[in-house]
Each structure stands twice: as C-alpha cells, then as structure tokens.
Design a protein around this nucleic acid. Structure first.
Length: 386
DNA sequence: CCGGTAAACCCAATTGTCGT
DNA sequence: ACGACAATTGGGTTTACCGG
C-alpha cells in the first residue's frame, strides 16, 4: 500500500465548500466497496494513494492539490458557495461539481483577460427589481434580440453571440446520456458576467427561456442557481427576484406578441382551450408552450385544472416523439446500420473564443492550453488562428 | 432560407482479467 | 477484497449537402 503525506485542511475545505456531511462524504468515497471506509481509517498521518484517488473522484482537483501544504483559499471570490448560503433549489453533487467547475473557469478566464488587456467591462446598467420588467425587456430587446431565426437552436446560438457583444459570457454544458447522476439544475448566473446553461436537447425553447431568465439575474446582478420548475412558477410561492426575472424573460421573448397574449380571452373548454392561438404564439416567438401557460395562469386566465391537463398533454407529446425516434433507430439498427453518433457539442460563446485567442497571441497561454481550453484537436487549430 | 437526409463520429458505464 | 487496466457496450447528435 503506497501512502503519502497530505494536507487535510484542503480536504476539509472542499467538504465544506460542497456542503457535504461527514457521513455523506464517507459514503461517496466508499462507492463500490464492500466495507465502508471510516474517517479514522482514511485520515492517518499519511494517506493511502488509493483513498486519495477516491476523494479526488468527487472533487476532481488532481492529486497534487491535496499534497500542497499551503492552506486553501476560503475567500468569497473563490466560490459562490461561500458568497451565498441558500439557493432556490437543493443541489445534488453533480450540480455542485458543475457550478464549481465553471466558477474556476470564470476565475482563470478573468485572469487571462487581465493579462492580455481584454476589456470585459459591463455595458448594461445594473437594475433594481423596482423597475418594471416589461418596460426593461422592451429596451433590452432592442440591444440583445438577434434578427429572426426560426430554428430554436440557431436562435439560441444567435442570442449567445449577441450577449457576447455586451460582454456577457454564456457557457453551455452537455451531459452524456449515460451519465449516472445528472445535474438537477438548468442554469446559473455568476457575478460579474457569466451565465451557464444546461443543454436541453429535447426542448431548446426551455433552454432559451432559462437563458432569458438568467439575463434577468445579470441585469439585477443577483447570483442564483436555477432549476426551472414551471409548475412552481405557475402556482408556487416564489421570491421577488425570481418573479422579476420570470416576467422579464417572458416579456423579452414575447416582444410584440405580449399584447396579443394579453388580449386572449380566458382559456376554457368552450374555446378549445385557445390551443391554436397559444400554439401560434409559441411558434412565432421562442417562448415554449409551457412558459406561456404559466404566464396565463399568473394572469388568471387559466385555471389550475386546465393548466394541469395541458401540461400533461405536452409531456405526453414529447414522450411519444422520443419513443418514435427510438423505434426508428432500433429499426435502422436491425437493418444493419451502424449506430455511432458523437456527443452533442456545447455552444461556444464567441467572447470565450476570442478571449482565449488573444491570450494565445499575447503568449499568455501556449498552443497546448489553447487546444485544451477550447476542446480542439490539433488539426482543428488552423480554423481558430486565421 | 427551409426541411429532409446521409455520413461522421464520443464518452461513461460495465465487464473481464490479472496482480497484490 | 481491492485496484489497475483493457475491451466492450450502448446511447442518439452534428454537420454538410441537396432540392425547393
């Protein structure tokens, strides 16, 4: 058994940052073992390399991190988990990992920007939740709304490009389909200018709504980690900031369709639930059907029962569509067609790319780091160096 | 610009094997 | 019982191209 000296302070610090209980932590590092590890068995004068590896499976800092004798940094700048105690949702481990991962990326990126003299200054004013969200949205639309794109994914792309022009850095992360524990969040906003989204392959419009919602957080400069629960949005108690961001996101995406929606009569069985009208608006804008429903509930135009029915119909439709796709694939497989597909690629913000590029040209990072950061293969490099 | 279609092409989990 | 490493398996997207 190989052992090594280590810095237990750093491990304790990480446990605290991830807000793990002692038991929880021990269960996590005992994964796959017949006999669970105990605190005493692991943290002796020297630690077993195996145990250290198990610990690093949680935190992914690299083994050398735990060997460093200098004390860990506990500043508020280093992690949102030291800045903010409570979030609108309970995060699972995967979610905490993702948040920490992007926080680290954010910090290293702002370092790079400083070193290569890139100005990432805020171009939009900080607003208060006393401001009227619909009026704000109309103003912001003029600056941040890309010209029309029908395809939701293309629109999302264009939106991220526009945000980049205003120094708002948007990241997307993609979870592998066979990942065991997926994150239980949809996105988050980190001060000063970073928005992170979870890829929603089945329903890009939801991802777009999350982005608009996070833009609201950016405008208010209020950090939050989000799990978009539409039922909660319609009926639950939500705090003022969340409500503001929802209203803002809705008005931002609805644009000129907002008055049309407001003129809609109450949704009842008699007018066939206004299904076609809602569908039309959903098609003309990038609002998802569900978001429109929650808006109508808030305006008192849809009763709880009708909302529930329409929601479950929507879910059902999505489920059916997925099932059909699956069947089609299975059929193709039987016909002898090889089924290999690459994993979805996260959308890259041009602001991110240009920052890394400048850092490279200024000699702040080398070619290897450039490839690694932008997730490129060396033969793709040329395209990025022009 | 749009919809449809074909071809290219990744990563995590699981399983197996062997050494300690 | 466990760790290390390799081979296998399984899940479903991007991107380019074409005709309209």
């Amino acid at each position: 058994m190989k052992t090594t000296t280590y810095n237990i302070e750093r491990i304790n610090h990480l446990i605290q940052q991830y807000q793990l209980g002692k038991e929880e932590f021990l269960t996590l590092i005992s994964e796959g073992l017949k006999h669970s590890l105990t605190w005493e068995a692991v943290f002796k004068e020297e630690i077993q390399i195996n145990h250290l590896k198990r610990i690093d499976k949680i935190f992914r800092k690299g083994l050398s991190y735990y060997l460093d004798p200098t004390p860990p940094i506990t500043s508020k700048e280093s992690s949102i988990f030291f800045r903010k105690e409570k979030f609108g949702t309970n995060l699972n481990l995967a979610a905490k990992k993702i948040v920490n991962q992007f926080e680290e990326l954010k910090i290293s990126l702002s370092g790079l920007a400083k070193l290569s003299d890139i100005n990432l200054e805020r171009k939009l004013p900080v607003l208060s939740n006393q401001d009227n969200p619909a009026l704000v949205a109309n103003k912001i639309r003029e600056q941040l709304m890309p010209r029309s794109k029908k395809d939701p994914k293309k629109f999302l792309n264009a939106l991220i490009d526009k945000f980049a022009e205003y120094n708002i850095l948007v990241f997307e992360y993609v979870e592998h389909p066979s990942l065991k524990e997926k994150t239980n969040i949809d996105g988050f906003f980190l001060q000063p200018n970073v928005i992170v989204l979870r890829r929603n392959q089945d329903y890009f419009k939801r991802e777009i709504f999350t982005l608009a919602h996070e833009l609201g957080h950016y405008l208010l400069n209020q950090e939050e980690i989000e799990s978009m629960d539409y039922d909660q949005m319609a009926f639950g108690k939500i705090n003022k900031v969340e409500a503001w961001c929802n209203n803002f996101a809705f008005a931002f995406l609805a644009g000129p369709q907002l008055p049309v929606l407001d003129k809609l009569p109450n949704v009842t069985l008699r007018n066939d639930y206004n299904f076609n009208e809602i569908k039309t608006i959903s098609d003309q804008t990038h609002l998802c059907f569900t978001a429109i429903l929650t808006y109508l509930v808030k305006k008192g135009k849809v009763s709880g029962a009708i909302y529930a029915k329409m929601r479950s119909d929507q879910e059902e439709e999505l489920r059916k569509r997925k099932e059909e796709d699956k069947k089609k694939r299975e059929l193709e497989k039987e016909m002898g067609k090889a089924s290999i597909a690459s994993l979805a690629k996260p959308i890259k913000s041009p602001l991110f790319v240009s920052t890394i590029q400048s850092a490279f040209f200024d000699g702040v990072i080398n070619e290897y780091e450039l490839c690694k950061t932008l997730n490129l293969k060396p033969n793709q490099l040329e395209k990025y160096l022009r």
